[in-house]
Design a protein around this nucleic acid. Structure first.
Length: 419
RNA sequence: GUGGGUGUAGCCUAGUGGUUAAGGCGCCAGGUUGUGGCCCUGGAGAUCGAGGGUUCGAAUCCCUCCACUCACCCCA
């Protein structure tokens, strides 16, 4: 028997209400904030991801689904959402549009990782990107959108963490300071941190090992090393967020895993520990578009994992609206009546009444049992007698009351009953 | 990639060396030759994760593999 590949899963009908709920909120909110939807291909050139995410990162080193197609092209399944949007921005000359260009997406992301709660090899991310403006007000808008998104979904007890990790000008000095600080404490570090010191020093700061936390707590802070421009940007952003009433907390130990971030980074976290500790996050990437071959174009974005959101909705007991289902079941008795039932079901659908029609050869009893199991509110029954008189039976499944009426009357009844 | 836990019908569970692997939920059908839910009766559905080994005999013990799951790394 075939099974869904490791780390993938079927989104079954009973799960779809959550998905519809979350995606619908995302779409509504993006429209409210003036973001337009973009859908990019499921795969891109390998280089787009390896160059943007960073050659030294785990995603590029071991987590990408890369393959060669029959034309010899090195292609990679979408490993994250931002780079493809930037590629599309460049490819379609969006710098000629009024800036910033504001785009959003809901799309599957593919990473070859060991699956665990809230982490999958194929998962969906909702993300938005605002390209072409460096104003801190834009940062504030993106963060506000992200925060409102989670709040409007009904999630509670979230924290919004904020930091600035500087730019091309000021970061090198900070990194050097950080490295030399950590070099003095190297014997206290965990094994992972010893390699981080060489490969990705920023990540030293968010190690969860107790012995490393102590070192990280008194480590130099990136916000103390910002150049005047970054300092002003960060301070104005905090001002906006305060004015918007967003409950952010500056965390000097917040860094992000992808190389392209500059200045603003932020994360939204639920209470829970472990793999799903980040519900969503984002930041500025002012150098990414020029690195991809475009003119210098500042930008900021945000992304969140749909599965993690749904996990947290369930954990917090948020109820989501049920998806609409047919409330009318059309049953029949006899071959001739079956043909009439097929016609009647179609006729009801033509006027917008959602129905399930019995098919095959089942007893009326079985048909009604099915109607009951499908939670139909009404059953319409057609039999030989009804065909003779041109009428049908309308049965109210809740009260068991039924009446024999014409099809015209049936339409009226159902229309008023179903609203 | 590292470490732990778990694998018995669609789902939940019993069975820890001995006849045809048991029960519940769900599904199907009958009890009403045109009427659902409750009840009663019956039925279908399991190569006991896979392969190998020990044994007269394995769901049960041993080995290997696989899958699921949780955590780490990393990330949404």
């Amino acid at each position: 028997m075939y099974r869904a590949p490791r780390g993938t899963s079927d989104i079954l009908p009973q799960e779809q209400a959550y998905w519809r709920y979350v995606e619908h909120r995302a779409v509504r909110l993006c429209e409210l904030y003036g973001y337009q939807r973009i859908d990019t291909p499921a795969f891109e050139d390998l280089g787009l991801f390896s160059r943007s995410i960073g050659e030294g990162t785990d995603i590029v080193e071991k987590e990408m689904y890369t393959f060669e197609d029959k034309g010899g092209n090195q292609l990679t399944l979408r490993a994250e959402g931002t780079a493809p949007v930037c590629r599309a921005y460049l490819e379609h000359g969006m710098h000629n549009l009024p800036q910033p260009v504001k785009l959003y997406y809901v799309a599957p992301i593919f990473r070859y990782e060991r699956p665990q709660a809230g982490r999958y090899r194929e998962h969906y991310q909702f993300g938005c990107e605002a390209l072409g403006d460096s104003a801190p007000a834009l940062d504030a808008e993106v963060i506000d959108l992200a925060w409102q998104f989670f709040i409007s979904l009904g999630l509670r007890r979230l924290t919004l963490k904020l930091n600035s990790i500087g730019c091309r000008q000021c970061r090198p000095e900070y990194l050097a300071t950080l490295k030399s600080y950590y070099s003095g404490h190297i014997q206290k570090l965990c094994r992972d941190c010893k390699t981080r010191l060489k490969r990705n020093p920023l990540r030293l700061l968010d190690c969860k090992q107790p012995q490393c936390q102590a070192v990280a707590d008194s480590a130099p802070k990136s916000s103390d090393y910002l150049c005047p421009d970054c300092e002003e940007h960060f301070s104005r952003l905090r001002g906006y967020l305060e004015r918007l009433g967003l409950p952010f907390e500056v965390s000097h130990r917040l860094v992000r895993g992808l190389d392209y971030y500059t200045r603003t980074v932020f994360e939204i976290q639920p209470e829970s520990e472990g793999a799903q500790s980040t519900l969503g996050g984002g930041g500025r990437y002012d150098d990414l578009i020029s690195e991809l071959g475009g003119r210098p174009t500042p930008a900021i974005g945000f992304a969140t994992g749909m599965e993690r959101i749904i996990l947290n909705l369930k954990k917090q007991g948020v109820t989501v609206p049920a998806l609409p289902r047919p409330r009318v079941f059309v049953a029949y008795v006899g071959d001739e009546a079956r043909d009439e039932a097929v016609k009647l079901a179609a006729r009801l659908r033509r006027v917008g009444i959602s129905v399930i029609g019995a098919v095959g050869d089942k007893s009326l009893k079985a048909q009604l049992r099915q109607a009951n199991n499908l939670a139909a509110s009404y059953a319409v029954i057609i039999g030989d007698e009804e065909i003779k008189t041109g009428k049908v039976v309308l049965r109210d499944m809740a009260t068991s009351e039924q009446e024999t009426i014409t099809v015209t009357q049936l339409l009226e009844r159902l229309r008023s009953a179903l609203g």
